Amino acid sequence: MKNIPAQPVKMIKWFHDFSWSGKLSAAVILAILLLAVFAPGLSIHPHNTSTGAPLQPPGGKHLLGTDELGVDLWAQICYGARVSLLVGLGTAFLAALGGGLVGIIAGYLGGWPDKFIMRLIDIMIVLPDFPLLIVLAAFLGPSLLNIIVVLALFSWVFPARITRSQVLALKEQSYIKSAETYGAGAWYLMWKHFLPEVFPLVAVNMIRLTGRAIVSEAGLSFLGLGDPTSKSWGLIIHHATSFKGIYFTDFWKWWLLYPWLALTMMVTALAFMSRELERIADPRLGGRRFSVH
């Protein structure tokens, strides 16, 4: 019988060790990922064309009803999952990549580069990020790429601090000292030793950053600063709350409630998943450290 690869076995074991909240969060995240990937097949109606009566309640051909233009709400939520995940994952990847490299450089080099980077991080932390996000988003224009770049500019500090603290401890290890004695350069140490060690914690932080970015994008879209063609969950909520008398009618029961539920479930699941993986990745939290080797 063929041997089963070690990496899938490890992943299955991690999932088995999850708490009930971690398993439920994983199921929710997987369901929303499938919703985004198979959106064309799961929604029989287009997400940007009127296919029914305006403000039609759930039922019949429209599972979750329609908006004020008669556009199917279920189709909008399916395609909105794509937008929210694109913004969340794109922001998390850019922030983790940039912040991770900055943190490794600061921790390993020390001296004035470390001091300069830490002062910059301190400034970024105390700045009120969401008002600045609003200003930059309004200045750069409403596009998904601009939103991802702006969110990444305010998110890199978190992985940078994590990687720096890890590198400060790792560079004092005997095997790092031995590698330096035998002529190992800075880039070799960063690629072969530091990056594999800090990757698990950075990956966990990426999950947290994904949820944060999804909420920020929804907030910008709610304020009318998102991409007007994206049909993200935040933009659906923006259109619903902009409708006069929405709270004095029954329209909010489907037009506002369902995208809010989708957004809340996704962000909550990401938060619980991040906490669950952090427990495993960080031994100080009582879990077992996992490795990418």
Rank of each mutant, 00 (worst) to 15 (best):
34 L>G: 11
227 D>F: 03
278 E>P: 00
245 G>K: 04
211 G>I: 03
8 P>N: 11
232 S>H: 08
123 I>H: 06
86 L>T: 06
106 A>S: 15
214 I>K: 11
124 M>N: 14
243 F>S: 14
10 K>D: 08
272 F>T: 03
176 I>K: 05
78 C>G: 01
28 V>H: 09
34 L>M: 14
237 I>R: 01
244 K>L: 11
187 W>H: 08
211 G>T: 04
120 L>A: 14
279 R>M: 12
4 I>F: 14
15 F>S: 11
188 Y>T: 11
194 F>Y: 15
197 E>W: 01
136 L>Y: 01
78 C>T: 10
62 H>A: 01
243 F>I: 05
293 H>E: 14
264 T>N: 09
83 V>S: 08
17 D>S: 10
83 V>N: 00
158 F>D: 08
245 G>W: 05
13 K>V: 09
250 D>V: 07
12 I>K: 12
118 M>W: 04
256 L>K: 05
283 P>A: 13
161 R>S: 13
225 L>D: 01
2 K>R: 08
193 H>Y: 12
98 G>R: 05
52 G>K: 02
237 I>G: 03
28 V>M: 12
174 S>G: 14
68 E>C: 06
274 S>G: 15
116 F>P: 00
94 L>W: 03
216 S>D: 13
277 L>E: 01
188 Y>R: 13
118 M>C: 09
46 P>E: 09
192 K>I: 01
74 W>G: 04
137 A>S: 15
14 W>N: 07
277 L>D: 10
47 H>G: 15
29 I>V: 15
59 G>C: 09
88 G>A: 03
25 S>H: 02
217 E>N: 10
78 C>P: 04
289 R>D: 02
73 L>P: 07
67 D>H: 08
279 R>K: 13
12 I>M: 15
148 I>N: 06
281 A>C: 12
199 F>V: 12
96 A>G: 13
155 S>L: 02
131 P>F: 10
140 L>H: 06
17 D>H: 10
157 V>I: 00
78 C>M: 14
5 P>V: 05
87 V>T: 09
71 V>Q: 13
257 L>A: 14
193 H>P: 01
192 K>Q: 10
237 I>F: 00
67 D>Q: 07
103 G>F: 06
147 I>G: 07
160 A>L: 07
84 S>W: 02
38 F>M: 06
82 R>E: 05
253 K>W: 12
116 F>M: 12
161 R>Q: 10
82 R>D: 04
259 P>T: 06
224 G>E: 11
142 P>A: 15
149 V>Y: 11
76 Q>D: 03
47 H>T: 06
265 M>K: 03
115 K>Y: 09
275 R>N: 14
22 G>Y: 08
65 G>Q: 04
27 A>C: 14
45 H>Q: 13
121 I>S: 10
164 R>F: 00
237 I>M: 14
113 P>Y: 03
233 W>G: 03
204 V>H: 09
73 L>M: 09
120 L>R: 02
262 A>S: 08
85 L>K: 09
212 R>L: 14
11 M>W: 13
288 R>E: 15
160 A>P: 11
